[in-house]
Write a protein that binds this DNA or RNA. Structure first.
Ligand SMILES: [Mn+2]
Ligand SMILES: [Mn+2]
Ligand SMILES: [Mn+2]
Ligand SMILES: [Mn+2]
Lengths: 227, 227
DNA sequence: AATATATTTTAGGCAAGTCTAAAAATATTA
DNA sequence: TAATATTTTTAGACTTGCCTAAAATATATT
């Protein structure tokens, strides 16, 4: 007797909620509150309550009134599949179609919902099984395994006078990425941390021979490893 | 004073209706009836009436009660853009990802709704501005121009003992395309029409040295040009 | 502990897209 | 042309996903 796993069809909205819950779970290591989810989804708390009941009924999250939600194993698997598709498509758009890294997130938000596991698998092969997307984020493999870089840290947690390599950005808004482009900073850029200003938590770095000042907000959105 | 053309955002459902109306208009050269549209959309006539009112309010079709619908200029432009995207994606899936021509239609049905004119343009360039999709259908260019082959005709309208080249298929169902695959018939296949059987309107052709019998239904779905 | 504040849920409503059943209009046929 | 059949529209209902306003619960403050 064979057991058939029925992978339920999810709406785009349901998928986006799953992704949002996953993202919050990764950031804060706690159950996800209704308000936090409403914030992430740019919607109202009452809408979140509605959706959260539906996802709970489908066993993709556990939900207790007034106590927030957590993804189930199945929910996590779905979230990771979506992230995999999102990052593969972003890689395709940059590597094959020549888009800038600031242009691909919005399009990938649409493409990640295309339903075809064969497509995902063939896209992965076509791209030569890339490990990271254009923003330096790791791409989960077909089994859902994500290889995080152990040495990765936020630029705000670095030592003075030490050399680092930029390996990722956590804000993918076009304005931030264009700002980095203007300064020539990209994934792989070699930098040295020169000074840290306590009054506004900005820092100055050496990059390509010149000194660049980065605001607190910019610094918080750059991930590096020691060089 | 500049006139700004506001390209309205359409839902996937609205887009599919526009495409369906266009397809029927091409086939029968007449206004499109509610029932014909319901048949094409695999839905009920009452649902069609509802949608037809909406599209009419958006000036994408002209609609008169009990008299069927016609696409407006704007409606036609939208239909052609969708067909362009559909066929470009099918080409991508076959040429770049290695899908079979029988596997791509369903996936392209999803991909054609991705919103980004820059994506369409870059995909076109990446594919080297292909003129035809994997089923031999012409791909509209960025200006909406479709180059139809003047010499194209249905296999049912061919002369005996004459040589032809298969240039297209009008049924894209996997079962039909797999049937052609089994016989080795593809776009570009050189064939000779041997005989025509009146009693069931089947024909026999010579292909690759061997004789193949094709049913009426098969014949009706193959497009050829004289060799 | 009682009160005030913040968070979350419920109640009720709206738009899109679909359906069934019934009514209205059009087309066919006797 | 009148009856019959077919097509199309309307009426009313359902689901999904969202909203606002109000009620319920939980948390913070005095
Ligand atoms: Mn992204
Ligand atoms: Mn990314
Ligand atoms: Mn197709
Ligand atoms: Mn095609």
């Amino acid at each position: 007797m064979t057991i058939k796993v029925i992978m339920q069809e999810l709406s785009t909205s349901e998928e986006n909620y799953i992704k949002a819950i996953y993202a919050i779970e990764q950031a804060e290591r706690d159950t996800v509150s209704t308000n936090a989810l409403a914030e992430q989804m740019q919607t109202k708390a009452s809408s979140v309550t509605d959706m959260v009941k539906k996802l709970s009924a489908k066993s993709l999250i556990t939900y207790e009134k007034y106590k927030g939600v957590t993804l189930t194993e199945e929910g996590i698997a779905i979230a990771i599949k979506l992230i995999r598709k999102h990052r593969l498509w972003e890689t395709f758009l940059v590597e094959k179609l020549g888009f800038g890294w600031d242009e691909v997130h919005e399009i990938a938000e649409q493409l990640e919902h295309i339903q075809s596991s064969k497509l995902t698998q063939k896209l992965d092969a076509f791209l030569n099984y890339p490990k990271f997307d254009p923003h330096g984020d790791p791409i989960p493999n077909e089994d859902g395994v994500i290889h995080k870089n152990e040495k990765a840290r936020n630029l705000s947690e670095t030592d003075l006078q030490e050399a680092y390599i930029v390996i990722g950005v956590s804000d993918v808004s076009p304005s931030f990425l264009k700002y980095l482009d203007k300064n020539g900073i990209n994934i792989g850029s070699k930098i040295k941390v020169l000074q840290r200003y306590d009054f506004d938590q900005s820092i100055s770095i050496e990059f390509n021979g010149k000194e660049i000042n980065l605001s607190k907000t910019a610094v918080q959105n750059i991930t590096v490893i020691p060089n």
